[in-house]
Design a binder for these strands. Structure first.
Lengths: 110, 110
DNA sequence: TCCATATTTAAACATTAGTCAAAATATTAA
DNA sequence: TTAATATTTTGACTAATGTTTAAATATGGA
């Protein structure tokens, strides 16, 4: 992963509405949710939601597909994993056993 | 984890210099690196680096400690893990077995 | 004490991001 | 075709972000 795309992805998630949308989609699973569902669930104005969904799309964090008059959004799990991998890459130069997201290195010495 | 602190952490990482600094610290391990080392390694002006380190500190992503005339920064691995956990929380409602960063859910259906 | 090194702070400036209101586009149903 | 629903686009406005230069603070050694 390139640092530029990591920055774009992180910036996309670094906003409360978008992070909420994203987490809703992560929880929803591969089937995703219609834009209107997201707008209702989060009480966001449609125009605002559309703006944020475009950011998430542009960052490659979500997919969208047209379904009749609805547009269904879903999380891009591959992108998510690539991002998490990028953040923890070469953690502690691999010297610590459990250098994974759920237990990435020991706490720093006090 | 609160959404507010997640947003602050993500915003802190959503900038090329800060992301580079952070990854350098993640790789360095608990011992950390002096500010000057980071500035040299990344060719960033000291004032600019200081600004970014403050952001990372404020976001809780790094620790700092004074060591003589140096200030040593190190990654806060607990904060990192909390953030990654927050992003993948309740992924696919738990219906998919391998719902973890290294393999978070199956790809969305095409 | 005085000087050099290490780091932070402050101020000014240009750039970018988010929100809102209004209008535009697309799809379905009557 | 007309009306209603779903979503996106545009433009205007305010606020926040990142860079640079210069000065300030702190530590260690001559």
């Amino acid at each position: 992963m390139e640092i530029t795309s990591a920055v774009v992805a992180l910036a996309a998630l670094a906003q409360e509405t978008r992070l909420s949308v994203y987490r809703m989609l992560v929880e929803a699973g591969p089937d995703g949710l219609a834009a209107g569902r997201l707008a209702d669930g989060l009480s966001v104005a449609p125009a605002s939601l559309s703006f944020h969904l475009k950011e998430l799309l542009h960052a490659g964090l979500v997919h969208s597909r047209q379904d009749g008059r609805y547009v269904i959004y879903s999380a891009n799990y591959e992108a998510m994993n690539a991002l998490l991998g990028y953040l923890t890459e070469n953690c502690c130069r691999g010297t610590t056993a459990a250098c994974l997201p759920t237990a990435c290195c020991e706490p720093a010495n006090p």
